[in-house]
Computed example of a mutant assay.
Amino acid sequence: MQESSSAPLQLSDLHLPDVPSWVPLAWGWWATAASIVAFVVIVVLVIRWKRKRLAPKKTALRLLTPSLGIQTPSSAIELLRQAALCYYPREDIAHLTGKEWYAFLDDQIGRPLFVPNETQWQQALYKKQSAVDTKALVEDCYQWINDALPPKKRRHVSVGKH
């Protein structure tokens, strides 16, 4: 038999491969990053659009609060008309007056709020001294702006068009 040498073999050191790099990323990571960026951009655009759309409503509601001084029905109904003009086409509501205007307002919220009080509105708007509860009329304007604006697509109906 042949004797084996007890000397260790002369092997070279192990060469491990380099650690994988993060760059360049695989296409799946790029797709994930692009979808996250697109989602964030869409969310930001929707928030900006919604703020811009609700700005006239928020301004009108802020101006109708009792602490800012709009206490007369004439100034409240004027503010209500301005707010409505921000959301509805001018040709649908600019010509409305009197009963047609009140019918339009009631139609947008789906319940009678202005037509039953038409005589009170006329007295409050055109008489210097009126015995009408002006606070309730201003609150009706506040309630209409809060409930009707921005308009729902199903409620948009022009009333009294010439």
Rank of each mutant, 00 (worst) to 15 (best):
L54F: 14
R62E: 09
S21G: 03
P24E: 00
T65F: 06
V19S: 08
P20K: 05
L54P: 00
F39I: 04
V41N: 00
P20S: 03
L68N: 14
L11T: 11
V19C: 07
V46A: 14
T59V: 06
G28F: 11
P20Y: 00
G28I: 10
A7V: 12
L54M: 08
I36A: 15
A38S: 10
R48P: 01
F39D: 01
K58E: 15
W22P: 14
T65Q: 14
W29P: 01
T32H: 08
W30E: 13
K57A: 01
V44Q: 13
K58P: 01
K52Q: 07
D13H: 13
A31M: 12
L25M: 13
P8F: 04
P8Y: 05
W22I: 05
L54S: 04
R53H: 04
D18H: 08
K57S: 00
L64N: 02
T32W: 04
S35Y: 03
L63I: 04
P20L: 05
Q10L: 12
L14P: 00
P20E: 04
Q10A: 12
V19W: 04
W30M: 04
V23K: 08
L25S: 12
F39C: 09
L14Y: 11
V41F: 11
A26P: 12
A33F: 15
A34T: 08
K58G: 12
G28K: 05
A55N: 05
V19E: 06
A55T: 07
D18M: 09
S67D: 11
K58H: 15
T59A: 10
A26R: 06
V41P: 01
P56Q: 05
W27V: 12
P17H: 04
I47P: 02
L45W: 02
R51C: 03
A31G: 15
R51F: 00
P56H: 02
A33L: 15
R62T: 09
P20C: 00
L63W: 08
V37P: 00
T59P: 00
A38Y: 03
P24A: 05
D13M: 03
V44D: 08
V46N: 07
P20R: 03
L61D: 02
L11C: 10
L9N: 06
L9K: 07
P24G: 02
R48N: 09
V23L: 15
R53Q: 08
